[in-house]
Structures are given as C-alpha cells and as structure tokens.
Amino acid sequence: MSKEFLTAVADRRTFYGISKEAVVSDDRIKEIIEHAVKHTPSAFNSQSTRIVLLLGNHHDRLWDITKEALRKVVPAERFSSTEEKINSFKSGYGTILFFEDNSIIESLQQQFASYKDNFPIWSQQSNGMHQFVIWTALEAEGFGASLQHYNELIETDVKKEWSIADNWKLIAQMPFGKPTSQPGEKQFNTLEERIKIFG
C-alpha cells in the first residue's frame, strides 16, 4: 500500500466523478478484497460477510439493472436526474457488492440463543468494517469510490443475474473508478462534542 494507514483513512472520501480508466491491475483489486475478507474481524469469528466483484460488462449490467428498477418507481418527470446519477456509477471501473450470509447468522442464533437478537447487529457491524477497509484500500491505490444502497430494488434481479445464493442478503454497492473530479471540503463537528476521555 502506497500510503500510511491513518493518512489513507483521512484521505478516503466519497467520489461521484469516476471513470473506467484502470488505476491498478484487476489482480491487485482482487488482492485487496481477499486481504480485507480474510483479516477484517467479525463477532464470534463468524466470517459471514460475502463479496461479489463486478468488472467490465458485469459492472455495466449492474447499473443497467438498477436504472430499470428505478424507472419503475421514479416519476418520469424526475427520472433524468436519477438516470444521470446512475450513469455516473456506471462510468466507473467496477462495483463491489457486499452481502451477509444469513445462514451463518441464523446458525449462531440457534447455538447461542441468549445473544440471538445481537447477531444481525454484529453482522452489520462487521460488514461495515469490510466496506471501510476495502474503500480505504482502494483510495490508497488511487481509486475513488462511493457507497450506495439500492438493496431492496435490485436484490432479486442481482441474485438471478449472477446466481447468488438465496441466503446471501445484499447490504451495499460500492462503485469505484479513477477520480475525474474532487469532492468538496469535508466539514467536521468539533471533537470536544464527540469524544470523552477519562483517566
């Protein structure tokens, strides 16, 4: 990785302007995902997060599916701005789909009944960590990315298109590509109102 960890964390931003130009090899993208999936923590070491990497025509197809799903629910007079937004994601190099394997969560609920209400929460927390690790690692390599949530609209079609197991629940979509524009300055609330330290 070309940046120190905390620098990469600070530099990670939401990029909407992205292109299909390659920044690193597909093998390097695969290495980043494999490293994140292997080393990101999960409650009870459940390892329930699942990742699907879409490149090339598969990436384009995802955003075509999303556009058509939105066309059914967005009024025609407002659809042009929606289409523009979806096309900005399609303009990227690839998309990472984040899932959770519900069969693992359900199994843990049965094994540890006293924690059953917590396992779905803990799985979401672990999925969020996977998202952050991959997002930050992609940024460190020179990609820009954003996190999207069209889950309910596209999950059935996504599972059908790529033969995804029924027990995988779609959590988020991360389109990424070479940045073509920079995000605005980030605003921060004061740390004093967000952190308390004792001792």
Rank of each mutant, 00 (worst) to 15 (best):
W63I: 03
G56R: 11
H59C: 04
E83V: 03
E83D: 04
E68C: 02
E83Q: 06
R61F: 02
N87D: 13
E68T: 11
S81D: 15
N57D: 14
V74S: 09
V74G: 09
K72V: 13
Y93C: 02
T82H: 06
D60A: 11
H59N: 03
S88N: 14
S91P: 00
T66S: 14
E77G: 02
D64Q: 05
H58P: 06
W63H: 00
I86H: 06
I86L: 04
Y93A: 01
F89M: 15
T66P: 08
I86S: 01
S88F: 07
K72G: 10
H58A: 15
S88R: 15
K85C: 06
S80V: 06
F89D: 09
E83G: 01
W63S: 03
K72R: 11
E68D: 12
G94M: 13
D60L: 09
G94Y: 08
G94R: 00
K85L: 10
R61S: 06
S80K: 14
E77S: 09
V74M: 13
K90I: 12
F89V: 06
E83F: 00
Y93W: 00
S81H: 11
G92W: 01
L70A: 11
G94L: 11
Y93R: 01
N57F: 08
I86V: 15
T82A: 14
V73K: 09
E68I: 04
N87L: 15
Y93G: 01
A69H: 04
E84K: 08
G56S: 05
E68N: 12
T66K: 05
D64V: 07
G56N: 13
I65L: 12
K90Q: 12
S80D: 13
L62R: 01
N87S: 14
H58I: 03
K72E: 15
R71Q: 05
E84F: 08
L70Y: 12
E83C: 01
F89R: 12
F89L: 14
T82P: 04
N57W: 01
V73E: 08
P75H: 01
S88Y: 13
D60E: 10
R71M: 04
S88C: 06
V74F: 06
S88V: 11
L62D: 00
G56K: 07
A76F: 00
L62Y: 08
I86T: 06
L62A: 04
S81N: 13
K72L: 12
S91A: 15
D64Y: 08
K72I: 09
F79D: 10
E83N: 02
K67W: 10
F79N: 00
E83K: 00
K90P: 05
K85F: 09
L70M: 07
V74P: 09
K85M: 14
G92F: 03
K67L: 13
E68R: 11
E77H: 15
E83H: 02
E77K: 13
I65Q: 07
P75W: 01
R71D: 00
L55P: 12
F89H: 10
